[in-house]
């Protein structure tokens, strides 16, 4: 089985807000890495998770499936999921798959943090 070509670093940027920096490829093989990152990010009563996609290099349709699964977990915990750093290409994928109906997209970390604080 191929290894996940992705790293996800977690930063606790403010009280109740965590950022996951995604670098590499978001495919089915990234499931374990993403869910571990989410567990670490949501530790300690976090109310908003921000995904940083600036380092995203490749995503296939399984990657979209992973984001849906993550979103269901986030909703179950009554948290909010936000993103920033999507290129035009990945923004277009969020639109056609209609992930943008449920996951708020921002241009910068500052904007995402501002929105997360309102959550």
């Amino acid at each position: 089985m191929p290894q996940a070509q992705v790293t996800m670093d977690v930063r606790k940027v403010r009280d109740g807000v965590s950022v996951i920096d995604i670098k590499g490829e978001l495919t089915a093989f990234a499931e374990g890495v993403l869910m571990s990152a989410y567990d670490e990010a949501s530790d300690g009563g976090v109310r908003a998770i921000i995904l940083n996609f600036e380092g995203l290099e490749y995503m296939n349709s399984s990657g979209i499936g992973l984001l849906v699964t993550l979103l269901i977990r986030v909703n179950r915990e009554k948290q909010k999921l936000l993103t920033y750093g999507l290129s035009d290409h990945y923004r277009s994928i969020f639109q056609i798959t209609r992930l943008d109906d449920a996951i708020s997209i921002y241009d910068t970390e500052t904007e995402a943090l501002r929105a997360a604080n309102k959550a």
Partner: peptide
């Protein structure tokens, strides 16, 4: 353009 650009449908 990322490596996966040719594999995705365009948004309509």
């Amino acid at each position: 353009q990322p490596r996966d650009a040719a594999y995705w449908a365009r948004h309509v």
